[in-house]
Simulated assay, not measured.
Amino acid sequence: MRQTGVVVSTNENTAILKMQRHSACASCGGCGMGKEEGKDIQIEAINKIGAAKGDFVEVDVSTPNVLKAAAIAYVIPLIVLFVGIVISNKVLTAINYSSNVETMSAIIGAFLMSIVFIIIKKNEPKFKKSEEYTPIITNIAEETTI
């Protein structure tokens, strides 16, 4: 997936870019912008080509890595939620839990999903260090509307 953006600032090996949010992100809301398509976002990208502040650049993120990151962030917690609900329902029924089994199963499933989200968040610095999930500036582009 290739997009363009403008360099806002640079660090040693990275740059902060201002980009227009991609239409594929419209329903995600992961950047905190809800469904406001067309709004600008800022991302951090690896700057191997030495782009400077104000440069218009092309940014590349491989599609399989985007899908893998989405699976880590959304699919794994969802699977844990469902598995937690099903297993806790069976265990609570087997031990003759006296209160509402379905409600307690949902609470346990949500608790397990929360733990997975915490684990993912705790490992986020490790994901950021990996170039596998980080956008890479590949080229200085012609000036376009951002």
Results as ranks from 00 to 15, higher is better:
I108W: 11
K122L: 01
E124H: 04
N139R: 10
K48H: 13
I49G: 09
N123A: 03
E132P: 04
S9H: 03
I146F: 01
N96K: 10
A15T: 02
D55Q: 04
K129M: 07
M1S: 12
S23H: 15
N123I: 03
E132Y: 15
I76Q: 05
I76F: 12
S88C: 02
G32M: 10
V59Q: 07
M113W: 01
T103Y: 08
I146C: 10
M33Y: 11
D55P: 03
L78N: 07
T138C: 09
N100K: 06
I95N: 12
V59P: 11
S9I: 00
V66M: 11
D60V: 15
N65E: 07
I43H: 03
I49S: 11
A26E: 13
E102T: 10
G34R: 09
V101Q: 01
M19Y: 12
E36R: 05
E36M: 07
L81H: 00
T134I: 15
L112H: 05
Q20T: 08
G5K: 00
L67R: 14
Q42K: 07
E102M: 07
I95G: 08
V75Y: 14
V61D: 01
N47K: 06
K90I: 10
V86D: 08
Q42F: 00
I16G: 06
S114F: 05
A106E: 14
P135N: 06
A26I: 04
K121G: 00
M104Y: 07
N47D: 13
L78F: 12
